[in-house]
Design a protein around this nucleic acid. Structure first.
Length: 553
RNA sequence: GCGCCAGUAGCUCAGUUGGAUAGAGCAACGGACUUCUAAUCCGUAGGCCGAGGGUUCGAAUCCUUCCUGGCGCGCCA
């Protein structure tokens, strides 16, 4: 809709130049159109006349007048007015808006999709929690945001891969192995001194017991080997847990990428060699450093320590270099906000390799504060017994959980109230939106029972939709695609959530004021058509967020 | 000390990339169920957009200096 109008404006400008009412002859690079807050200002407003004032050397209002004259008999526009310092307000013909309804019906589940991404290959890497314990609530937010970002990108025509980076190579894995081994020995009646820095939590005992029954007690096995066996076993089981929990959350990865495999395939050394070749790394104090300060980092960073072992950064560098070698045009990392300090060094690395820094986008996910009835829900830090994501999903359900994680922009902290999320009441925004969908379904059931047929596109008289609120609903439906595009381009899935709440609110209001099934058959058909378009868009938006659209509540 | 994020109604937060009179949900108050699901709707009230300065036709939005809160500043992962 916006683009149609934009095109019409361009044509009108050209006419003005041809007729000489405007003189510069330059078409502006961009024609800004916005939806005004105040509906009295029309469907779209443009500041065009004001931005052109300098080039044209004319008062904005005079430019606007010339333009308005040229647009006078365009069928797209009902009314074009000049307002304030030189805004041009466009009111489109209702028929334009109702045309959107046919589009919704024809495209169905596809409605809202676009091709602005033009097949650009993007990888979204998210969760990537260490495979040393179950996911907790903080991981959950990153998981949902990452998944939803991937979904809106796909809907906007980007080619997206979802990847989980498995940190199965570092020290933490060894610690897990050692912790399991100690618990295993406990099971065998030994009194062991459990390491201070070991994993204290209960699930380690669980893993030890499992290992005992599946593999044996590892008696007589050399300690180093035993630790490794425990680590391997632990990582495998924990990854299984994680995958199951994510699946329960509706999240599926296209690829699980093992850090260990980077080393096994000599990729780390290979990529580090490339850095050296380009003169980006140097040796000092027996260590190998990456010169990130050349690209805005405040310190150079160690890749290989003086004892010969690799830092976490080394494999991360190799991993990201390899991402681009895999052919992605853009790479998105979803991290916890506590890792924000790593962004400059990662971007520096990419700049050094000749990538523009925007090719890597890091989304920082702020903390989640868990509440119950408004009271902070503190978890025992030392005991290691935190609230797992699984417990939260089991308690409040996947739909509510996902919706709450998506309701805020990801760079602001989130208060997550378990009781509120569970409540099936007015206070709960999830049900508010789902209820709107269920209501349309209910109308459909009643229509069927009364023998009213579902409207067919070529038979509906959309002229029967005469009310302001019906026009407003059609306009809201028309905005769905640009909402998705905005969410995709800015990596802000919460925009879709707000869109949903707006659409649901408009529908609920309409529902309370007007009946859909009325005596007049033609009006009934037109209204059924409209509310079913609402239903389709509600469902499309909910599914985009991974939330269900129930037919009955 | 340096860096990142945030600061908007009593509370939790939006704010269309610089536009016209700053919005929503809770909470408060008053209304609407013999009518397609009241998990809903309608109305009232609520503001120095943390503070100062700057940029311009125009700033919650951009620049700058402060203040407050959170999080980071390892040859840890």
């Amino acid at each position: 809709m916006k683009n149609q109008l934009r095109q019409a404006i361009k044509t009108a400008l050209q006419q003005c130049y041809d007729k000489g009412t405007l003189s510069s002859g330059e078409l502006p690079a961009e024609i800004q159109l916005e939806v005004p807050k105040n509906p009295e200002h029309g469907d779209f407003a443009s500041n065009l006349a004001m931005t052109m004032a300098k080039v044209e050397r004319k008062a904005p209002r005079m430019i606007a007048e010339a333009l308005v004259a040229a647009l006078a008999d365009n069928p797209l526009c009902d009314k074009v007015e000049i307002a304030g310092p030189g805004f041009i307000n466009f009111r489109l013909a209702p028929a334009c808006w109702y045309g959107v309804l046919n589009q919704v019906m024809t495209e169905g589940a596809q409605y809202g999709r676009s091709e602005v991404g033009a097949g650009t290959k993007i990888q979204v890497e998210f969760v990537s929690a260490n495979p040393t314990g179950p996911l907790h609530i903080g991981h959950g937010r990153g998981a949902v945001v990452g998944d939803a970002v991937a979904a809106v990108l796909q809907a906007a025509g980007f080619e997206v891969q979802r990847e989980y980076y498995v940190n199965d190579a570092g020290n933490q894995v060894k610690t897990l192995g050692y912790s399991i081994l100690m618990r295993l020995r406990e099971l065998q009646g030994e009194t062991v001194e459990f390491p201070e820095d070991g994993y204290q939590a209960e699930y380690v005992r669980e893993l030890a017991a499992k290992l005992q029954s599946e593999i044996g007690d590892l008696a007589g096995v050399d300690e180093a080997e035993a630790i490794e066996a425990c680590a391997r076993f632990g990582v495998e089981k924990v990854l299984d847990w994680i995958a199951v929990d994510l699946k329960a959350f509706g999240i599926n990865f296209d690829n699980w990428y093992s850090e260990k495999s980077l080393y096994d395939r000599n990729m780390v050394d290979g990529e580090l060699a490339k850095l050296k070749e380009k003169g980006l790394s140097f040796e000092q104090d027996d260590a190998l450093w990456l010169r990130t300060t050349d690209y805005g980092d405040d310190k150079d960073r160690v890749l290989i320590k003086s004892d010969g072992s690799y830092t976490y950064f080394a494999s991360d560098v190799a991993y990201h270099m390899e991402k681009f070698e895999r052919g992605f045009d853009r790479v998105i990392d979803v991290w916890g906000a506590d890792h924000h300090g790593y962004i400059p060094r990662m971007k520096a690395m990419l700049s050094g390799l000749g990538h523009p820094p925007e090719d890597l986008e890091v989304l920082l996910i702020q903390m989640v504060n868990l509440l119950r009835d408004g009271q902070p829900f503190t978890m025992g830090k030392r005991s290691g017994n935190f609230i797992t994501l699984r417990e939260v999903i089991d308690e409040v359900g996947s739909d509510a959980c996902r919706f709450f994680f998506l309701i805020r922009r990801c760079d602001s902290q989130l208060d997550f109230d378990l009781e509120l999320a569970k409540q099936q009441s007015t206070d709960n925004p999830v049900y508010y939106v789902q209820y709107a969908h269920a209501r349309v379904c209910s109308i459909n059931r009643n229509a069927a029972q009364a023998g009213v047929a579902q409207p067919q596109a070529d038979q509906v008289d959309l002229g029967k939709l005469e009310l302001e609120e019906e026009l407003a609903l059609a306009k809201q439906l028309a905005r769905f695609q640009e909402t998705i595009i905005g969410a995709a381009q800015n990596y802000e899935p919460h925009r879709v959530v707000f869109y949903l709440q707006d659409l649901a609110a408009q529908f609920h209001s309409y529902y309370n004021r007007q009946r859909v099934l009325v005596d007049d058959a033609a009006t009934t058909q037109a209204r059924l058509y409209l509310v079913n378009c609402v239903r389709i868009v509600l469902a499309n938006a909910l599914h985009l967020l991974g939330v269900s659209a129930p037919e009955k509540m």
